[in-house]
Simulated assay, not measured.
Amino acid sequence: MSATTITIHNTGNPKSSAAGERAWLTNPSNARQASFHIAVDEKEAVECLPLTENAWHSGDGSGPRSGNRTSIGVEICESGDYAKTLDNAVALVAQMLKERGWGVDRLRRHYDWSGKICPRLMYDGGKWTGWAEFKALVDSKLNAGDDDLHVDKASVVINGVAAKDGVIIDGAVYVPLREVAEKLGAVIAWDNVSKTAKVDTKGGVM
């Protein structure tokens, strides 16, 4: 998928966390054909699918211009401290827009694709005041300046060759696995069923 928008949802589950929503996707008792890219709660954001992979979250089928085919789905959890969860969602979405050079005109509601009342906690009896407030907060964060959206980066050199920058989180440097593997002359494969990344070198599997 080459995304053109970001779609906002509420989970519709007042008891589940971001980790819980992620776990539900692979729960054997879950027979629904539905998925999403990111779930965010009061503590964290969990990426559940690569942002370049289609997710079935918009309820509008599989057409080439459907939300399912063109939009990144972000689920805002309803459990815990919802005000803090909204703060985290605003920061996350603003960062995603900034990274792509987009503005809030790229934001969509689930409602925009299929007419479902979602994100339901922004509905306000059809006035959608919560949605307007959310977009305004994202826009404010987006235009607050680089310091407010700052992510520390680290230069990465592999065998003397510059690679893509990594990001520093809690003192550790994170680099895309494919970037490291390919710079080391290895082959990387992704098993979407088991959600397993395999890196093969000349001497075997890392």
Rank of each mutant, 00 (worst) to 15 (best):
V156I: 14
S66D: 02
R65V: 10
L51G: 00
A3W: 10
A172M: 08
E44R: 14
E133V: 11
A154L: 04
S58K: 03
S35V: 06
I72F: 03
L184H: 01
N27P: 03
G103N: 14
A91D: 13
N13W: 09
A163T: 05
V46R: 09
L121H: 13
Q95C: 07
E75A: 02
K164A: 14
T196M: 07
I117M: 11
S155Y: 08
G63N: 01
R22W: 11
D148H: 13
P14V: 11
D170T: 13
L49I: 00
E47C: 09
S17G: 12
H150R: 14
E99F: 02
A162F: 03
A94G: 05
C118T: 11
S79M: 11
H57P: 00
P64A: 12
T4M: 10
H9E: 05
V167N: 07
G73M: 02
G115L: 10
R22D: 14
W56M: 08
I72C: 03
N143M: 07
I169V: 15
A172N: 13
I38E: 04
N27E: 14
T129H: 12
S35L: 04
T4H: 05
E42W: 06
E133L: 11
K43L: 08
A132H: 09
I158Q: 09
C48P: 04
K183M: 11
S79N: 15
L51T: 04
V161K: 15
Y123I: 05
D41T: 07
P50L: 06
V175M: 01
G20A: 10
